[in-house]
Structures are given as structure tokens and as C-alpha cells.
Amino acid sequence: MNVLLLLLILMVLAGLWSILTSLLLRATIALALTSVLLTVVMFQMNAPLAAVFELSVCAGLISVVFISVISLTHRQPLKEYLARRQKRILRFWPLPVLLLVVGVGLSFVHRPVHIMLPHPTAFGDIRIMMWQLRRLDLFGQILVLLAGVYGVLILFRGNKNGN
């Protein structure tokens, strides 16, 4: 539990960093770090398969997507960047305070919840779960992926009109 607590605190801090940092590239790295920490949390909770997915897809693929978008779109002069950095502090200082207030506040209002938890399902194995009980989700996933493929075909294709 203590390890989990530490990891979760680190995760929130990494998320905070990804918002506060003024460089987009650093924000992406921080996001990937959040993802990696989530992966470790999942390993700690005995969910290795989801953890592997999170690591390879979220920490890996999404970072690549982010970095390529940044490299395609970002061209900001240094001067402007420095000027904006000052303004950013004004907009973002409430966030850490807010986080602290929410965290401390919530830890005080805790009331024990008395609810009967359901019995764990008989199908404890993830493979059976995925391939036999949740096939419809897999079908849905294929659908979403197909939509994504068309999205890439349409959105990333250059403009036909030549501009």
C-alpha cells in the first residue's frame, strides 16, 4: 500500500508538471512519465496485461503522436516564448493550491461506505474474459480502429486544392 501511495503521489506530481511546464516538449515527456507511473501502479495491482498496453500504447505511441504534432506545428520565436512564460505563471499558480485544498479537504470528509461488494466473477482469467465474454467489445474496438484508419486517410492527406 505504501509503495502504491508513493507511486500515486508521483503520478499526480508528474501530471502537475505536464501542465505547469512552459515547453510543450517537456509537457509531452511529463505526460509519458505519468503514463509510465500508471503502468507501475497497474503492475502493483496485479493487472499486468493492461499495464503492458498502457506502457506500449499510451507512453509510447501517444508520445510519438504528440511529438510529431509539435514538430509539425510549433514555430515560436524565443522572445515570444519568454514573454509568455511570465504570463503563464499568473494563470497557473492557483492549480497547485487547488490540488492541495482538494486533496486535504477530501481526506477529511471521508465517511466509511457500507456496501456489500459483489462476489468476484467466476471467470478470473483475463483471456477467457476478453475472448469469450466480451467479444462484442472487441468487435466495437475493430469498428473504432477502422474509423481511425479512415480518419488518418482523410485528415492527414494533403489538401487537394494545393494550399
Binding site: A47, L49, A50, F53, T121, D125, M129, D137
Partner: peptide
């Protein structure tokens, strides 16, 4: 204790 279900949902 429903990790199998939770994992398959998380993956999706």
C-alpha cells in the same frame, strides 16, 4: 476482485 473484467475494459 474483478480484475479480469477491469483489465479487459481498461484495454479497450
Amino acid at each position: 476482485g474483478n480484475l479480469a473484467l477491469a483489465q479487459s475494459i481498461a484495454i479497450t
